[in-house]
Measured scan of single mutants.
Amino acid sequence: HITLTNLITEETTHVVMKTDAEFVCERTLKYFLGIAGGKWVVSYFWVTQSIKERKMLNEHDFEVRGDVVNGRNHQGPKRARESQDRKIFRGLEICCYGPFTNMPTDQLEWMVQLCGASVVKELSSFTLGTGVHPIVVVQPDAWTEDNGFHAIGQMCEAPVVTREWVLDSVALYQCQELDTYLIPQIPHSHY
C-alpha cells in the first residue's frame, strides 16, 4: 500500500527527490524536513527503477548522498536516519524571529523540533538559566525595514544566528558551530 502526497507528515516514510546520477539534489523544504524527520530521502531513480523491475528495490542503493550547497557526498540523510536517538538540537531552545522567505515560519519551527529543539514563540519566553541553551534564528535578507535584527541582543541574552545555521546543520545532520553564522549585535551602550 503506497500513498503519494506532496505533504510531509509524521506518517511519511520516504521523501523522493529529483537528483543527478550521483544522487545529489537541490536543497528544498521537503529535503530538510525529510532529513530532520529521519525519513528515507531517496532519488526518484528509486521509483523509476522499482517500476521498471516491478519490485520495490532497496532504498540504500538510492539514498540521497549530498546536495548542491553542502557538498556532493556528506551523507546527511543517512546520518539522520541512523541517529534518531541522538537529535542534533537536543538541549537547545530556538526562537525563529522575524520574517522568513521561501519557507513558512511554522515549517522552520517544525524542522528544529524534529531535530530535538524546544521552540519558543517570543524572545521573552526563553527559560534562561535552566541548562537549556537559547538561540535566536533570523533571516536578515528578509527584513525590509531597518536592520532591527542587529538589536535583538538587547531583548534577550541569546546568540543570534542566520537561518543558514539551521539549514546547514539539518542538511549535514551535524549541529554546526555558531561562530560563522552569528549576527553582530549592537551593544547596549549605543542607545
Rank of each mutant, 00 (worst) to 15 (best):
H1V: 07
I2N: 08
T3L: 12
E10S: 13
E11K: 08
E11P: 09
E11N: 02
E11M: 08
T12N: 00
T13Q: 01
T13R: 01
V15T: 02
D20T: 07
F23M: 10
V24C: 15
C25A: 12
A36V: 13
V41W: 01
V42Y: 00
V42E: 00
Y44R: 03
F45K: 07
W46P: 02
W46L: 04
I51W: 09
K52I: 08
R54S: 10
M56C: 08
N58V: 13
E59F: 10
E59Q: 08
H60P: 12
D61L: 10
D61V: 07
D61G: 09
V64A: 05
G66E: 00
D67A: 00
V69A: 09
R72A: 11
N73G: 09
N73V: 03
H74V: 05
Q75L: 13
Q75T: 15
K78V: 03
K78P: 03
R81A: 01
E82L: 11
S83V: 08
Q84N: 05
D85Q: 09
D85T: 10
K87T: 15
K87D: 12
I88S: 00
F89N: 00
F89P: 02
L92Y: 10
E93G: 15
C95L: 12
C96Y: 05
Y97G: 11
Y97F: 05
F100M: 15
M103S: 04
P104S: 07
D106E: 11
L108I: 05
M111K: 02
Q113L: 08
L114S: 04
A117R: 00
K121E: 09
G131W: 02
V132L: 15
V136L: 14
V136M: 04
D141A: 08
W143L: 11
E145L: 14
N147Q: 08
G153C: 02
Q154W: 04
Q154T: 12
M155E: 08
S169R: 02
Q174V: 06
E177G: 15
E177T: 10
L178M: 06
T180P: 07
Y181L: 02
L182E: 10
I183R: 10
Q185S: 14
Q185M: 09
I186T: 12
I186G: 11
I186V: 07
I186A: 12
P187S: 09
P187N: 13
H188R: 09
S189I: 14
